[in-house]
Amino acid sequence: MSHRSEFHGRVVEIIEAILRHYGFSVQREYRLPTGERIDLVGQKDSLTIAVEVSITSDLAKDIDKLSKFNADLKFIVVVKPYEIPTINGIYIVDLEGFEPRLRKLLKVPLDYPPALASLPPLPPLSSLDEFENVLEGLGIKEFVEPALKLLLKAHLMGGQVPTRFVYWPYPLEKPIVERMLEDPRVINLLVTLGLAHDEYGIHGNYQEGKVFGITLTDKGVSLAKAYEKHLVNEHRYEIVNVVKSKPLISFITALACLRGASLVYPPKRNYVDALAHVGFLLAIRDIDRVSELPYPSELIYFCISAFNLPKIHNEGVKTLKDLERTGLVLISPYDFKGRACEDSCIYASTELLKFICNSLYKDSVAKLEESGIPKN
Rank of each mutant, 00 (worst) to 15 (best):
F7G: 01
I15W: 01
I15A: 10
A17G: 14
H21S: 08
G23S: 05
F24G: 01
V26P: 01
Q27D: 07
R31W: 11
L32E: 13
P33D: 08
G35N: 07
V41P: 05
V41T: 09
Q43A: 10
D45C: 04
S46R: 15
L47E: 09
V53W: 00
D62H: 10
D64P: 03
A71S: 12
F75R: 05
V77W: 01
E83F: 09
I87H: 06
I92D: 05
E96L: 15
K107E: 11
V108K: 01
P109S: 03
D111N: 15
Y112C: 09
D129I: 04
G139C: 02
K141W: 04
L150H: 02
A154I: 02
G159Y: 05
T163P: 01
W168M: 05
W168P: 01
P175C: 14
V186Y: 00
A196E: 00
Q207T: 05
G220D: 01
L223D: 01
V243W: 04
K246F: 13
L258S: 08
R259L: 00
G260S: 14
P266Y: 07
P266Q: 08
P267H: 11
L275D: 10
H277D: 14
L281P: 00
A283E: 13
D286W: 09
P296M: 02
S305V: 14
A306Q: 14
H313Y: 13
N314C: 03
E315H: 09
D322L: 12
G327P: 07
I331D: 07
Y334L: 06
C341G: 09
C345T: 04
L352T: 04
N358R: 13
Y361D: 13
D363I: 15
V365F: 08
P374G: 07
P374M: 02
K375V: 15
N376D: 12
